[in-house]
Amino acid sequence: MRELLSAGMRPSEDRSDALIATLQPADASLSLSRRRRGRESPAGAFSIDPAGATALRRQLGPGRRAPRLLLRVPPALVLERPVTLPLATEGELDRVLAYELDRLSPFRAEEVFWTYAVEGRDTSAGQIRLRLALVPRQGLEAALGTLRAAGMPAAGLLAPRGSGGSWSFGLEAPGTAREPAGRRLALRLAVAGCAALALVAAALPFLRQQRALAAAEARIAASRPAVTEVEALRRRTAERAGGNDALSAEAARLGRPLEALAALTAILPDDTFLTALTLRQGVATLTGQSAGAARLIAALSADPSIRSAAFAAPVTRQEGGRGEVFTIRVDFGA
């Protein structure tokens, strides 16, 4: 009766009494143990070859009925992945997964032993969440052949589960267990109908997404002229900003004559006048006449816009006490 249940309805862990042959890939051997009431006891080890098959057959003994035997595979051979399907496929998960296996894994259905377990349902989103487990057939052919040659064909597979416990695999694909002959045709028609509904349900989100994408593309096309205009305005603004930055950099390098002239006009006293003024790269040279040239240095140095001020030549006094002739170097800085 257990074999008539779908894989998702079967217990994920088989604890029934049985012989268990554990595959040892490192030395190509099988470790045999006997499980009774959930406890295992060693029963020998055999090589995976004709000699091992003969030894297994001899241990069973002539005339004895072969016990139920399970092949346990190592964790390295087990592949697991989550799968989400439309909730409408819940009644035919075996068939749907068989059709979709080449999309969900690197293998075709006939290349692997596989099973699954239902992990949850989201009725609001119309989805069912599964955990799919796969074991490639290629890595087990030699071991299964040795067991068949010994007259002890494996009834199923055991494999460790990533979240704890173990997986139980049938050697036939899920959903292919024997059924009464009178139900096969009806079941096949039902499977075909469910598969068609599953395909429609799977394609519906993509159709909605395509419609939304088309609407978004239409809105983008309608807004493209405005975007082009904004980009052109940004380019012009950037070009103007670049020109202003260049002018500012050049003014900082060469000095700002109007600002320097305004500062000197405000600082120099009324009894002082200039006969020459030069400004190069922020440094001004003042030549003129004043009633007291020495006080000009203090007045110029007190202004925050002037970095330094000093005489560039000796001060000379004019005949008749008409003032002093000076040459001062003023550094306005950056």
Rank of each mutant, 00 (worst) to 15 (best):
L258E: 11
I220E: 14
V315F: 03
A150Y: 01
R184K: 14
A133P: 03
P304K: 06
A51T: 12
L30S: 00
D49N: 13
S248C: 10
E217Y: 08
G151M: 09
A45N: 06
E119M: 11
I328R: 00
E229Y: 08
L71M: 12
E3D: 15
L279K: 01
L77G: 03
A21P: 03
A284S: 01
T54G: 09
D14F: 11
A26C: 12
R256S: 08
R37W: 14
G8D: 06
R211Q: 13
R39M: 11
A26D: 12
L79H: 08
M1D: 13
G145I: 02
E13K: 11
G323N: 03
L213Y: 08
G292Y: 06
A251P: 01
A149C: 07
A117M: 07
V230R: 15
A216G: 09
R39Q: 14
R137P: 04
R57L: 11
F273E: 03
R280A: 09
A173L: 08
D331M: 04
D303V: 02
Q209I: 05
L79C: 09
L93A: 02
A262V: 10
A142G: 06
A294M: 11
A181W: 09
G38V: 12
L23V: 07
E172P: 06
R224D: 13
V112E: 07
S6A: 14
E259D: 12
I306G: 00
L85F: 05
P136N: 06
F326N: 02
L30Q: 02
T115R: 04
G282K: 02
A299Q: 05
A216N: 10
G193D: 14
R235M: 09
A143Y: 03
A133R: 04
E3C: 09
G175T: 06
G320T: 04
R211F: 09
A98S: 08
T146P: 04
A98L: 08
A241K: 08
A218P: 01
P205V: 05
A190H: 04
Y116V: 08
P50E: 08
D271L: 02
A302W: 06
P62C: 12
E40K: 06
L189G: 09
Q318G: 14
G120V: 04
N244P: 00
L144V: 03
A215G: 10
T237G: 13
R253G: 07
L158C: 10
I128S: 00
R95S: 09
G162S: 15
A221H: 06
R253D: 09
S6D: 14
L158V: 07
A212H: 13
